[in-house]
């Protein structure tokens, strides 16, 4: 277990220190006194576990490929943005755009996520233990977004093939979002995800897989068809 103390160092020096330790073979790194600084632990391409003791600012764990970045406090905008693979875990809440444009891996937020969680995601999993804000999963292309609590307005707007699951209430659905009951495979997937990422204690406070609703694209916006003129007028 190695430690990187952020006090008095530039973000460039901090990330360089993390990467140097990983190059030397270190697998567990603790980052202390992060002070909610931006760009902590970005672009880590090795399977190391970086624990940020405290809060992180913007873009924490972004552009990752295979690393695990864990934040004990909260994270700012763009958590794990454009991650290829790996895991980002936030024990507090996350700012806007958590898990935006990820291509793979898992983004786990134990608290609430603010607006635009999982927008334009192209794979992977965004799992929110609490509530999510406005326009989550907007234009989602692939992957899954799970919200254990309530979802905000314009949920799952204009999606391609991202599949969303909500355990609580949905304030309002976005254009072309369709609600279904989860099938057997969905329930298995949900239960497996909750079991994998949440402890037994935490799981007790969350809905079970069968209690979620499934939200996916109605596919009305995928191709232009004159007969669907009305939905296009509403969407644009």
């Amino acid at each position: 277990m190695a430690e990187v103390n952020c006090e008095g160092r530039s973000i460039r020096e901090i990330n360089f220190a993390i990467k140097s330790l990983i190059r030397e073979g270190e697998k567990q790194i603790t980052v202390t006194q992060p002070g909610a600084r931006h760009n902590l632990g970005v672009a880590i391409l090795e399977p190391a576990h970086v624990t940020i003791q405290g809060s992180a600012g913007y873009y924490c764990g972004g552009l990752a490929d295979g690393s695990t970045v864990e934040v004990t406090g909260s994270a700012g905008w763009g958590l794990a943005e454009s991650m290829l693979n790996g895991t980002a875990i936030v024990h507090g809440s996350a700012g806007n755009g958590a898990g935006a444009a990820i291509r793979g891996g898992a983004v786990i937020v134990h608290g609430d996520a603010a607006a635009r969680a999982g927008v334009s995601m192209k794979g992977g999993l965004v799992l929110i233990g609490g509530n999510c804000g406005y326009m989550a999963a907007f234009m989602g292309q692939k992957g899954s977004l799970i919200v254990c609590g309530d979802a905000g307005d314009a949920f799952a707007d204009s999606m391609y093939a991202t599949v969303c699951y909500v355990g609580g209430k949905i304030a309002s659905l976005g254009t072309d979002a369709v609600v279904e009951d989860p099938n057997e495979a969905d329930i298995q997937f949900l239960d497996a995800a909750l079991e994998r990422y949440f402890s037994v204690e935490i799981r007790k406070t969350k809905p079970a897989g069968k209690d979620f609703r499934k939200i996916l694209a109605g596919r009305k916006l995928w191709n232009f068809d004159k007969r669907d003129r009305k939905i296009w007028l509403e969407a644009l």
Binding site: G35, A36, R37, H38, G54, S55, G57, Y58, G73, S74, G76, W77, G92, S93, A94, G95, N96, G111, D112, A114, A115, G133, Y134, G152, D153
Partner: peptide, 22 residues
């Protein structure tokens, strides 16, 4: 606007939350 402002001026263990739309 950013949590960095809170951590710079206010020591201690407290939770910070981004405000939602509206």
């Amino acid at each position: 606007t950013e949590e960095i402002a809170l951590r710079n001026a206010l020591p201690g263990d407290y939770e910070v939350r981004e405000a939602q739309a509206k």
